[in-house]
Amino acid sequence: MHEFNWGLLIVVYLFLGGLSAGLFFAAGLANYLTVDDKPVYARIARMGALLAPWPVAVGSGLLILDLGNWYRFYKLFTHFRWESPMSIGSYLLSIFTAITFVYLFSWLTAEERAWLFGKVPASWKQVHRLNVDISSWREKIAMVGFPFSIGVGIYTGVLLGAVSARPFWNTNLVAQMFLFSALSSGAAALLLAMVLNRKSPIEKHETKFLVTLDVVFISLELFIILPYLIHGQLSSLAVKQALSLILGGPYTFVFWGPFMVLGLLVPLAIEVYELAPSIFKGREFHGSRNLALTAAGLVLMGGFLLRYIFVYAGQVSSFRQMGMLN
């Protein structure tokens, strides 16, 4: 049996890194959109800003724990190797994480900042000088953060796609697939968080915004997965054999059932069902709470499964004749 060098920790990390990228992107976008010069999605932007740093911070921690020598992780930052996606990725990830924390800080209210700095001993004057209101920087921070969030979303795919020895990964479509999956996970997580927040219930226009965003990202993801399958079938034998892992091989069920149908098509159908009457018939958007929760939960599950399938199936694929085809 083939040994898996990258396991569940890597899957979880790829998912969490992408999730943060998606949260930041959706939050930043929500901050820019205004109606009559009023920031109507400010609550979404704030929620996204508050959530964005944590998944990537936890994910990076898992990534370090997965190393054979975790305490040597600093060596990633004493070298820069532009040919190694992991080297580029670790810099990208650190900068992005820093930006998400600054962005979070810019969304804290005066009271929240007072509470936070209340934890710091009063004698640490230099630290207390950081207690400033940077809410006017929000848009600038978001602007700087956009390329980095896209970068993190793409890089998780490039990390796999750049490995020429694994035909299952070695296509330029994996990076985009992971990016759009990350962005849709981010929108779904925001929707989930907003709906579950009972203190300040989500409003209809907010649900509509997040659902619309998610429909766009899921559709883009779907139209990358289909070419991935078609292209793979029309490609060289090694790629075709690698694809057989999800077309008849051991990962077929998890790919088509839980991922494609439950994680992609069902939430897409739910969201389109929710949006369609307001778009085509001019009716009011009703925004069912349960449907939103279901769709968002399924999208997050799909995002996780996509990474699970790719990490595991990819490692089985190789240019050697694959055992299952003998």
Partner: peptide, 27 residues
């Protein structure tokens, strides 16, 4: 001394020529 044990090289090798030294945490 420089290997952090990320095992990326093991995935990148088309010949499965590398192994992970569990005890030392290096490839």
């Amino acid at each position: 001394g420089e290997c952090i044990g990320c095992r990326y090289c093991m995935l990148a090798c088309p010949y499965d020529a590398r192994y992970f030294h569990e005890e030392d945490g290096v490839v």
